[in-house]
Amino acid sequence: MVQKIFPSPAVALEGVLFDGMTIMSGGFGYAGNPESLIAEIYRAGTKNLTVISNNCGNENFGLWFLLTQRQIRKAVCSYLGVNRLFQEQCQAGEIELELNPQGTMAERIRAGGAGIPAFYTRTGVGTVVAAGKPAEEFEGQLYIRETWLRADLSIVKAWRGDPAGNLVFRKTARNFNPEMATAGKITVAEVEEIVEAGALDPDQIHTPGIYVDRLVQSTINEKRIGELTVKKAAAF
């Protein structure tokens, strides 16, 4: 069996980082972010990155750290969230922004992993999302063409993994991670727990090990909870 387990996040990323690369990073809000691997990309200072991620991090969390060093050149995402640094850099023209409807983005990633270069969807028809995209009519309805998303490197976060690279995600931390694991030329997975071969129930595996090139134990396992923002009612 090919040795997939690496001793640290830094070693797991050796030889795969380069300026100008495209990185897919799993996560949705605070759930399922490959924090340990992101920290090593930050330390490496890899720049001019195209990052494919749901929301490019939150304040003082995840991909936000790459923004502090201006490492991201382009972001393909579906949500700016409450990440003020991300918003400021996009508005200043420092980052090229490609916004996607969330379901469309998920399908573009899945298509990349499945080897499907393009597909058609009704989502975005008649909006700015459709600008510049080919359109075609099917059964009397207009659809726009979307293309796959692929990456030089996919970094994902799972709950458990075994020596073969099989992964199990826990609850909402599953999010974009399984699809992203299939769409990278190289996939590096960090897991909270590495278990022995045969310990995972085959029926419970979300990502087969064939998609995972390198596996590493997480060094950062924060369990943050999103803040509830309450807007006070206007006085009349």
Rank of each mutant, 00 (worst) to 15 (best):
I186Q: 07
K223V: 13
A173I: 09
G198L: 03
M180W: 06
M21Y: 01
S78Y: 06
G126T: 02
A135R: 14
N58G: 11
H206I: 10
T123K: 12
R70S: 14
K171Y: 14
V129G: 05
R110M: 15
E35A: 13
Y79N: 12
Y42Q: 14
P202C: 03
W159F: 10
A10Y: 05
G81M: 00
A189S: 01
Y30C: 04
G140W: 07
I116M: 14
S36L: 04
S8A: 12
Q3E: 09
L66E: 07
G103W: 03
G184F: 02
R110N: 13
L37I: 01
A39D: 12
I155M: 06
A189I: 00
L99N: 08
V230Y: 09
A233L: 04
A12F: 00
E146P: 12
F86W: 02
E136G: 13
Q89H: 09
E88T: 07
G209C: 03
S78I: 06
G198I: 07
A173H: 13
V195M: 11
N55H: 09
G20D: 09
S36A: 13
N60I: 10
A181M: 04
A75S: 14
V51T: 02
P34E: 03
A199T: 11
W64V: 02
K74Y: 05
L85S: 00
R214C: 05
V125N: 02
L200W: 00
K232P: 13
D152A: 08
A235G: 12
A131T: 12
R70K: 14
E14L: 09
F6R: 08
T182I: 08
K47T: 15
S36C: 09
I52Y: 05
K171R: 15
K157V: 12
T104R: 01
C90P: 07
A118K: 13
L37C: 03
E136A: 15
E35G: 08
N54G: 05
A118R: 14
D152S: 09
D201V: 07
F138L: 08
A10H: 13
G93V: 03
G26Q: 00
E193C: 06
A173M: 05
N175D: 13
E35N: 14
E190M: 04
G32Q: 02
T172V: 15
P178R: 01
V2Q: 13
A234D: 07
V2M: 15
F176E: 05
Q71T: 06
W159N: 12
N177C: 08
A234G: 11
G93Q: 05
Y79I: 09
M1I: 12
K231R: 15
I5R: 00
K47N: 10
Q71G: 05
I41Y: 00
L85T: 05
E190V: 09
G15T: 03
A10D: 07
C56M: 15
E14N: 12
G15H: 00
